[in-house]
Design a protein around this nucleic acid. Structure first.
Length: 419
DNA sequence: TCTGGGGTCCTAGGACCC
DNA sequence: TCTGGGGTCCTAGGACCC
């Protein structure tokens, strides 16, 4: 049967852990991490000790993604914890992408381990959609060594929901006539868009399953969830109309980096170094994409895990590290209570972006050619020799990294265009 | 024993203008 | 003698995703 529209969703099973397992097997290990209770976890010493990905056996112990490692170990004393290796994951991501592009010209990357494929119109060449989904799944397993789930449906939402039905190494469909039997019995929290905060809200309204949500009165949803209620109800009914395609990527809205530092910061001097370090990374990425920003936001989280943020709209867009750093410092100064408040996490983010080519000259902040040259020089050195190859003198013996935050080698837009 | 990092979108209240 | 109302911008905060 040929459908009006057919979309695939491909999702790597326990991505980081699978990739780690495959790499180890290929490098002489006899132990397959996927077959034992194991997790990829951050470094507890530097206060990054959470579960990033769990194996299926680990899941059976009740271990959850995002959980702190010591809690996970309490649930499973024999838990094997391995550190993350992001460059390996980027390579695996690329390998998967290459294979998907070989399978179809219409691939939309959704995250490091997920992608959509528009299969509409491919039946005449590749045959029945479900059979093709099985071929794709098996080919990934045989050629790359890790398993995926492939969800098949009439739109991106249902394809994605289908991919979740059971794991690993599975193909599932969720066609319109299957929504009631396959999707509606699931707990409402399983629906894309229903998270930690909305689940209890819906449960209080006696909405326990996706089916309950699909049949809930509009007026009640609007009263408790505003416009989000109608969106979620439409999702529960399987309605979603966005396109698949690399061209459909929404333009980038902002660039930010944040970091939990290994110690609690309680001096202005240290705080400013952390802010500079983050600003270096943010601005490097900003200049790399040829953009300038007008809005600077700083966020902090203190030792009690309470967080807040401040933002400032500058008179003119800039990509200059020093200007953005100065703004960030001022914002921090405005919201920090002083040494009594110990800060564990800092974030710097820029938004309200515009093309650097059309950067406005501001009368208040005259364009500073020397600052621009310094930025360009540092960028070139760091691009060639690595981010740690040059550093500002203030960082020497500070114990604070001169450039902080990850550089995503690829931009992963969230499905903001869903609906 | 201690809780990551990268994003996007929506809402609400106050300021300000006409 | 009485105190409108709509629109937009700015800022903070919360929700969601992987």
């Amino acid at each position: 049967m040929v459908r009006e529209r057919t979309v695939f969703h491909v999702d790597v099973n326990s991505a980081y852990l699978s990739w780690e397992a495959v790499w180890r097997l290929q490098h002489g290990s006899t132990l397959d991490l996927r077959t034992i209770p194991s997790v990829v976890g951050g470094d507890a010493e530097s206060r990054h000790g959470i579960v990033l990905t769990k194996s299926i056996p680990a899941k059976k112990f009740g271990i959850q993604t995002g959980e702190v490692l010591w809690q996970a170990r309490q649930k499973c004393p024999n838990l094997v914890v391995v550190p993350p290796n992001y460059s390996l994951y980027m390579m695996c991501h690329q390998a998967l992408l290459d294979l998907l592009h070989d399978f179809s010209p219409n691939v939309q990357v959704f995250s490091i381990d997920e992608a959509f494929i528009e299969y509409t119109g491919s039946e005449s060449v590749q045959g029945d959609a479900v059979a093709a989904a099985y071929r794709l799944k098996d080919r990934i397993r045989n050629e790359l060594g890790f398993t995926v789930n492939v969800g098949v449906g009439p739109n991106k939402l249902l394809a994605k929901m289908a991919g979740e039905f059971s794991k690993p190494d599975k193909v599932h469909t969720c066609w319109p006539e299957e929504i009631a039997s396959k999707m509606w019995p699931l707990p409402v929290g399983e629906l894309f868009g229903v998270g930690r905060a909305t689940t209890p809200k819906l449960q209080r309204l006696n909405i326990m399953t996706i089916g309950d949500l699909a049949n809930a009165p509009d007026e009640m949803l609007a009263r408790h969830l505003k416009s989000y209620g109608a969106l979620l109800k439409a999702s529960a009914q399987g309605q979603e109309f966005s396109d698949v395609g690399p061209d459909f990527r929404p333009p980038m809205k902002g660039i930010g980096n944040s970091s939990t530092i290994p110690f609690d910061c309680d001096t202005l001097q240290e705080a400013k170094l952390v802010l500079l370090s983050l600003t270096e990374m943010v601005c490097m990425r900003l200049r790399q994409t040829g953009l300038c920003a007008r809005l600077v936001s700083v966020s902090i989280r203190n030792s009690s895990m309470n967080g807040r943020g401040h933002q400032h709209r500058m008179d003119a867009a800039t990509d200059n590290t020093f200007r953005i750093y100065e703004t960030a410092c001022r914002l921090f100064g405005e919201m920090w209570q002083g040494p009594s408040e110990k800060i564990r996490n800092f974030g710097v983010r820029v938004s309200d972006l515009s093309l650097a080519d059309f950067m406005q000259m501001s009368i208040l902040q005259p364009y500073d050619e020397r600052k621009k040259r310094l930025d360009d020089t540092l960028d070139r050195i760091r691009f060639r020799y690595g981010t740690q190859s040059v550093q500002r003198a203030a960082f020497l013996a500070s114990g604070i990294a001169p450039v902080m935050g990850g550089v995503p080698e690829e931009n992963f837009p969230v499905m903001s265009n869903i609906v």
